[in-house]
Each structure stands twice: as structure tokens, then as C-alpha cells.
Design a binder for these strands. Structure first.
Length: 721
DNA sequence: GTAGGGTTAG
């Protein structure tokens, strides 16, 4: 039937390219063949068609529009302004395809028609096509006007084409058009700001005579996106002074600046202004408020804002969940996440990386796995941030195998993902894995950054890979692009110190221009391992010069004296610490059994199953002593007799937690995962090795610094921690 | 005979 239609005049869209569904085509043909009229009275002149097109667009009926189009071509109306009107009607009805086909067929086009098409492409996120059309327009010697430029600058900024954008600016000047137009100005300011050329953005902004809210908001956004938050606030204040009223876009952006600056005072003032202006019901503004308060550390205010936000969308939920994680409310963040999913909102990459972070911090392995399932279901496993968060989560839960599995499943491995993986190896004490990956990345031509060096050096120090660590550190010193930071030095000091090369470690600290308390404390910790009392006294004075109230250093020194049996020094230290109001945090271990967390302190008799636990501890003691376990009383830091020292060791919190774990999972051969707030003591470490052998169980202990994986009498740290 | 600016992260 289509083949029977008359030849289409040139300026009208070819009939075949209308791509109508089959029944539409037959009805159109039917209309045409039977001469069924479109409307009554039948359009006869230009104004009739204009009215008809207006009717189609107001009803947004693409079908009627196409019918009218056909009628026009049948009646032979090749009028330029009508063609343009038709293109705009197609765009208003949402069919960029019809508009574009018609545009290509037109023998003549007005600049307005070019503008409409370019603008439609930009609005549909097709900035590449918009730029193509702009270039075609220039080649065809059509003079672009202010309107054209106000749109193409956005297209260039969307595509990140700095050079092209600057060329377009040049052309604007050559054509003698004015930057001072607020529309052109805001397009340019936005483009330069997004390219990070804030100076250019400000220069353009200064030239605009009649500054309006959109122009200044574009500048504010540019400032916030490039870390110039103070400047953003200045622009905002200037705006208020000039009595240019801020709108929802302005408020949503400026609140972010207050959050990043941690300027709660300004944030609250702006919140007040926003309420007065009536924009506090705009969801984007509320979302920014949630972020602002959470970044200022007032997460309870974020919660209040959120509670009164009935239209909360995915971004609002994500802002709150992320805020909760950043404010140490990981458990609440997971509850909120559950509520969000219950409302049938599907999480995005931002939401998922935040909740995965919550699982990492809490070392919640099962929940982490559940979220991994959601990641797979939502198809977001390829997202960089999600991948990094997954590797980090598995690493922090001690599942190095799963971390590697996720790592290997990712297509593109950038430096951030490699860092996450190396860091996971470091925390679990797989130094070799970390060094291998580090060497491999360099062979594949990926440049390590400062975080990579930090992770791989800490991996070496955790695994006692002294020579490897020194080799990597000297390669960092030779690296022309990176400078070793005090953190890098601290890793190497730790590495040398733990290996007993204390003088070398001390000399290394002396090479640092401004050594901090952390560096000296690291050396102090090495003195503790190697019982170097005299050196410890000297190092302690350095620590105190830089950080008087360093609680950790006081505890360390006190433990050094205790190990050396200098009990009078120990009691002196206790008095000093009491005077300085420094408290030693009590050692604590916990284990999760059936969704419940059980916490234990040393010698804790309060658990309902305390008797059973003691019996289990006794059974374990008998079994492991036959294998050769001897309690190491050097780790008892109290002045007791030998027998009491031995007894005090039996009831260390990590031992109680493991005994409870073995009792709870008696009939279930799962791995026992325990957590400790301080570092595992040497005797407990040895004890757990024996227990893993006699119980034939895998035991994972996460202490304040790292993971220990115990299997068959061995630990992944190779006794280096 | 048409338009420019916003919110979430490791």
C-alpha cells in the first residue's frame, strides 16, 4: 500500500522514515485514499495549519501530528515557516527522530530551526549530535546567534570538550555577539566552571551587566564542584546584598558548600532563609539540608529534616544513609537501608557503596554478603565504587578469597581498585599477595599512587617482608611524581622496628623534616616488642614533646616497664596517667551468634553460659597442653605471682569469646570469627594457634590493627604483628 | 520564534 502513495515533496519527511506501527500506516493510507478529511473545516491556508499544529501539540498527540503532516504534504504546502513550525511541534510531542528527519529534508532552514534542533538534542542528552549540528551550521554559513551559543556551551561542557568550547567562545566574539547577555553569560560561566577554569568563569560573570539568579547559581555550582566553597559562600552573600532572590537550585547548591566547610552556622542561616522563601518543600533542597547537617556532624538534625520530608526520593535516602555511616551510626544506616528497600526504592551505586562501608566497619560478613546479592541483582557489580566497596568489605571481614574473587571479576582495574585489593591483603597479613599485585600493576603500566605505596608498605610491615619493603620504599624515594609522607615513613619505621633494626628505624625518623608523634610512637611500639627499656625512655620524651596527652604512648611505656619487671615505674606511670586523666581502654572481644553480638571482657563472669564457657576453656587447656602449649607469662602486665599470672592469661577476653564460639557452633563446622578492640596478646595468639589445631576449625580474629586467620595451628600473619 | 543553573560516594 505504501508504494502507491504519491511522491513526497522534498521538504517533507519521506513517508517510510516515519516508522509508524503497522496499523497506523494502514489507517493513514486509508485516510488518504478515501480522502477522509482530517478536521472540519478542511485546512486550506497557512493559518489553518498553524491552528491545527497548535491543537496537536497542546494534546501532545504525535499520531494527529503525523496525520496533519501527511495532509500538509498531500496539499503541497512547502512553506518555510510551516516546516519550522512542524519541527517544533514534533519536538514538543517528544519525537526528536521525526523532527530530525524533517530537518534533513528541508531545502532551506532558518537560524531558529537550527536552534530548536540543537536545543532539543542537548535536552535529550545528545550533546554530541548538538555539536555536530552546530559545526554543520557554521559550514553552511548560517550565522549563529546568542541563542545558539547559550545552548552549545552546555553541549561542549557535557562532552568535556575544552578546546571546542573555547573555539565556540572565540566565534562568539568574532561574530560580534555579546557575552553580557545573561543567557550567553550563564552558559559560558557554567561551561568554564565545569572545566575547572574558575578564573575564566568569574571574568565572564563580571562582564554580565544584568546578573540574574541563574548566572550566579552557575558560578556557585562551579565553585562548589572545584572545592572553592568559601568563594561560593561569598558569591551567595553578594547575591543577597544585590537583592537577587535565591531559588531552589541556589539553595540546593550553597548548602553543600556549608556542609563541606563544616559551617553549621551559615548552613542554619541559609536553612532559615530557605524556609522564608518557601523552598524547603523542594526535595532537592531538603536532600542538601540532610547532607549539610550530616557533614557538619549534626546527624540528628539530618534525621529531623528527613522525617519531615514526605517526598524523599532515592537521593534523599542515600544522603541520609551515607550521613549515618559517616557519623559512626553504621547500624542505623543498615536499618534505614532496610526501610528504603521496603519502600520499593531500588538502591543505586552510591547507596550500595555506603551500606557496604557500614558492613566493613562493623565487620558484618553475612549482611555484607546479602548486600553483595543486591549488587548482583541490580546489575551494579561493574561500578567502580561498588567494586572497591565490595573488596574493602570482604577484606575487612577477613574473607580475602572473596575479595580477590570480586577483584578478578571486574573488567577494568584502575589504581583505586588495585589499592583496595592490596589493602585487603595488607590487613590480612598476605604480604606476598600484596607485593605480587604491586609488581604486576607496574608491569601492566598502571602507575601506583601514594595510597598504593601506603598499602603495600603496610602489607610488608604486617608480614615482616623487610627486604621487599625497603626495596619498595626506595622506589618511592626515587619516584619523581610522588613524595613520601610521614605515613609512608611510619610504615617503614614499623617494618624495621619490628624486625629489631631499631637504630636504622630511629635514623630514618631523623631524615623526616617534621616528624610527628605517630612516627615516634611507632618506634616506641618496636621498643615494646624488643624490650628496649632505655631506648623507650628516650623515645617517650620525643612523643611527649609533640603530643603530651597521648594515651597510647603512656600505656605502651607502662607495658614496657611491666615486661621488664620494673613495677615501681609501672605504678609511677599509673599515677601520671591518673593525674593527666588518661584512661586505658579495657580489652574487649565480641562474637556474633545467631544475629546477636556477645561481648566479653577479661575474666568476665556475667555471661549466662559462663560455667559452660569455663568448662570449655578447661577442656581446651588440657588438649593443647598435651600438644606443647605453655602459657607465656611475659604478657601478664600485672605484678602477680607465677601461678596467678598463668591464671590471668586463661581468662583473656579473646579466649572466652572463642570458647563461646566453639560451644555455640558445636554441631556446625563454620569458621569462628571474633573481634577485639585492642591488639591480640602474644600468649592468646599462640593459644589460638593450638586451639585451631585441636578443634580443627578455622578461626579468624580481627584486632584493632588487622586480621589473623588461624588454620591447623598456623596463623596467616606468620607470627608477625 | 527558541533557553541557561541543583542534590548522593571510596
Amino acid at each position: 500500500m505504501l508504494r502507491c502513495l504519491p511522491k513526497v515533496p522534498d521538504f517533507i519527511i519521506p513517508f517510510q522514515s516515519l516508522a509508524l506501527p503497522a496499523f497506523h500506516i494502514s489507517s493513514v493510507s486509508h485516510c488518504l485514499h478515501k480522502n477522509i478529511e482530517l478536521n472540519s473545516p478542511c485546512p486550506t491556508d497557512l493559518s489553518d495549519y498553524i491552528v491545527l499544529l497548535q491543537q496537536c501539540t497542546s494534546r501532545k498527540s504525535l499520531w494527529d501530528l503525523r496525520r496533519t503532516h501527511l495532509h500538509m504534504h498531500k496539499s503541497g504546502f512547502p512553506h518555510l515557516s510551516l516546516g519550522n513550525k512542524l519541527i517544533q511541534s514534533y519536538l514538543k510531542c517528544g519525537s526528536i527522530e521525526d523532527a530530525s528527519n524533517l530537518f534533513d529534508e528541508m531545502p532551506q532552514r532558518h537560524v531558529v530551526t537550527w536552534n530548536s534542533m540543537i536545543s532539543a538534542y542537548v535536552c535529550h542528552g545528545l550533546s554530541g549530535e548538538a555539536i555536530g549540528l552546530f559545526e554543520r551550521m557554521c559550514l553552511e554559513n548560517v550565522f549563529a546567534d546568542e541563542f545558539t551559543f547559550s545552548i552549545v556551551f552546555k553541549a561542549f561542557s557535557d562532552m568535556g570538550l575544552v578546546h571546542g568550547g573555547r573555539k565556540a567562545h572565540g566565534l562568539l566574539v568574532v561574530l560580534g555577539l555579546e557575552v553580557s547577555d545573561a543567557f550567553v553569560g550563564s552558559g559560558l560561566v557554567d561551561m568554564y566552571a565545569k572545566f575547572g577554569r574558575l578564573r575564566d568563569a568569574r571574568l565572564v560573570c563580571d562582564r554580565v551587566v544584568e546578573k540574574d539568579v541563574v548566572l550566579l547559581t552557575a558560578l556557585i555550582v562551579g565553585c562548589t564542584q572545584h572545592g572553592e566553597n568559601g568563594e561560593a559562600l561569598e558569591v551567595f552573600r553578594g547575591m543577597i546584598v544585590k537583592e537577587i532572590k535565591a531559588n531552589d537550585f541556589t539553595f540546593a547548591s550553597i548548602l553543600i558548600a556549608c556542609g563541606v566547610l563544616g559551617d553549621r552556622r551559615s548552613g542554619m542561616q541559609i536553612h532559615g532563609l530557605m524556609v522564608k522563601s518557601g523552598y524547603d518543600y523542594v526535595v532537592a533542597c531538603r536532600t542538601s539540608l540532610v547532607t549539610m547537617y550530616s557533614k557538619c556532624g549534626s546527624i540528628d538534625d539530618s534525621l529531623k529534616v528527613f522525617e519531615r520530608c514526605p517526598g524523599a526520593n532515592l537521593v534523599t535516602w542515600t544522603a541520609l544513609i551515607t550521613g549515618l555511616v559517616q557519623n559512626g551510626r553504621e547500624e542505623s544506616s543498615l536499618l534505614m537501608f532496610k526501610q528504603m528497600v521496603g519502600k520499593s526504592l531500588s538502591p543505586n551505586a552510591f547507596t550500595l557503596s555506603s551500606v557496604l562501608r557500614a558492613c566493613s566497619v562493623l565487620a558484618m560478613y553475612e549482611q555484607g554478603q546479602q548486600i553483595h546479592c543486591i549488587v548482583l541483582k541490580t546489575g551494579l557489580h561493574g561500578e567502580r565504587y561498588v567494586g572497591a566497596a565490595l573488596i574493602d568489605m570482604y577484606g575487612k571481614c577477613g574473607s580475602i578469597g572473596m575479595a580477590r574473587l570480586v577483584f578478578d571479576s571486574l573488567d577494568k582495574c584502575g589504581v583505586v581498585l588495585i589499592n583496595s585489593m592490596i589493602n585487603s591483603y595488607a590487613q590480612s597479613g598476605y604480604g606476598k599477595g600484596a607485593v605480587e599485585l604491586f609488581d604486576h600493576m607496574q608491569k601492566s603500566g598502571i602507575e601506583p599512587n601514594d595510597a598504593t605505596f601506603l598499602s603495600v608498605l603496610s602489607a610488608c610491615s604486617n608480614a615482616g617482608l623487610v627486604e621487599e619493603g625497603c626495596r619498595i620504599f626506595s622506589s618511592l624515594q626515587r619516584n619523581s611524581k610522588l613524595d613520601p609522607s610521614t605515613d609512608h615513613y611510619a610504615c617503614v619505621v614499623d617494618l624495621l622496628g619490628r624486625a629489631g633494626r631499631l637504630e636504622e628505624a630511629e635514623n630514618l625518623i631523623k631524615q623526616v623534616e617534621e616528624p610527628d608523634a605517630v612516627l615516634w610512637r611507632t618506634l616506641l611500639s618496636a621498643c615494646r616488642i624488643h624490650g628496649k627499656v632505655e631506648m623507650a625512655r628516650r623515645v617517650m620524651t620525643r612523643v611527649l614533646e609533640l603530643d603530651q596527652g597521648n594515651e597510647g604512648a603512656h600505656v605502651l611505656l607502662s607495658n614496657i616497664f611491666a615486661s621488664a619487671g620494673e613495677w615501681s615505674e609501672v605504678s609511677n606511670m599509673k599515677i601520671t596517667m591518673k593525674d593527666m586523666k588518661l584512661k586505658k581502654s579495657p580489652g574487649m572481644s565480641w562474637i556474633k551468634v545467631d544475629r546477636e553480638v556477645h561481648t566479653f571482657t577479661a575474666g568476665d563472669p556475667s555471661h549466662p553460659r559462663a560455667t559452660e564457657i569455663n568448662e570449655e576453656l578447661e577442656r581446651l587447656r588440657e588438649k593443647i597442653e598435651t600438644l606443647g602449649y605453655v602459657p607465656d607469662v611475659r604478657f601478664v602486665l600485672q605484678d602477680l605471682n607465677e601461678e596467678d599470672k598463668k591464671r590471668s592469661l586463661y581468662y583473656h577476653s579473646e579466649k572466652i569469646a572463642i570458647a563461646f564460639g566453639l560451644l555455640s557452633y558445636k554441631h556446625n563446622n563454620t569458621c569462628i570469627r571474633i573481634f577485639k578492640n585492642l591488639r591480640v596478646c602474644g600468649d592468646c595468639h599462640n593459644w589460638i594457634k593450638y586451639v585451631s589445631k585441636v578443634s580443627e576449625r578455622e578461626i579468624i580474629a580481627r584486632d584493632a590493627k588487622r586480621f589473623h586467620h588461624f588454620t591447623d595451628g598456623m596463623c596467616s600473619c606468620g607470627d608477625h604483628w
